[in-house]
Design a protein around this nucleic acid. Structure first.
Length: 173
DNA sequence: CCCTGATTCGC
DNA sequence: GCGAATCAGG
């Protein structure tokens, strides 16, 4: 894959949204997270808010000294990562968070702000996103509750997560 | 061990 | 310009 205008645009957008390089690579497809990071740097988009830790870099030291073995494969996925493993949301409950909707005609899937409404199980309807937040056994457990898409149980943001391989999903919000 | 971004450098 | 390898850190 090459960096077409479209892909660069998406890269810039997702990077600005704060997605990690690996997540962006997963969405773009065909590129590694290193490729994404490299591209970001070449475009000079590094400093993204106050996010990363960037003290300084060191010299690569004596190059071509001892290549050493590759890190080996890292495929093995953990057995059962159910809804229970979803990381507790770090977003504070917002009393009247608006559902994720657009006023214009832009595609819904380009919404990226997953402010959970933190609904209780009994508050769910056909139209609310059923993405779980937190540990189901905990008192804090809740559902996203944002406007669900017409064709699924999740809001645009979580639908996107739901249809990604678990390995790319990582922690959900 | 999982992950993050940063850097170097051969291509 | 590209991105794997590597590094430094959480």
């Amino acid at each position: 894959m090459s960096w077409t205008d479209e892909r660069v645009e998406l890269l810039q957008k997702l990077w600005a949204e704060g997605l990690s390089a690996s997540q962006i690579a997963g969405q773009l497809g065909g590129v590694s997270r290193n490729a994404v990071i490299g591209k970001v740097h070449r475009m000079k988009l590094s400093g993204r808010g106050r996010a990363t830790t960037a003290p300084a870099r060191q010299k690569k030291a004596t190059a071509s000294a001892a290549p050493a073995a590759r890190p080996a494969t890292r495929a093995a996925a953990s057995p059962a990562r159910a809804a229970a493993s979803v990381a507790p949301t770090t977003l504070q409950a917002q009393p009247d968070a608006k559902p994720v909707l657009r006023q214009d005609n832009r595609p819904v899937d380009d919404v990226v702000v997953p402010i959970s409404r933190r609904l209780d199980l009994t508050e769910l309807t056909e139209q609310t996103c059923k993405w779980p937040n937190g540990d189901p056994l905990s008192d804090d457990f809740s559902f996203c509750g944002n406007q669900a898409g017409e064709s699924g149980p999740y809001c645009a943001y979580h639908a996107r997560l739901a249809f990604q391989p678990a390995s790319e999903r990582r922690r959900a919000r």
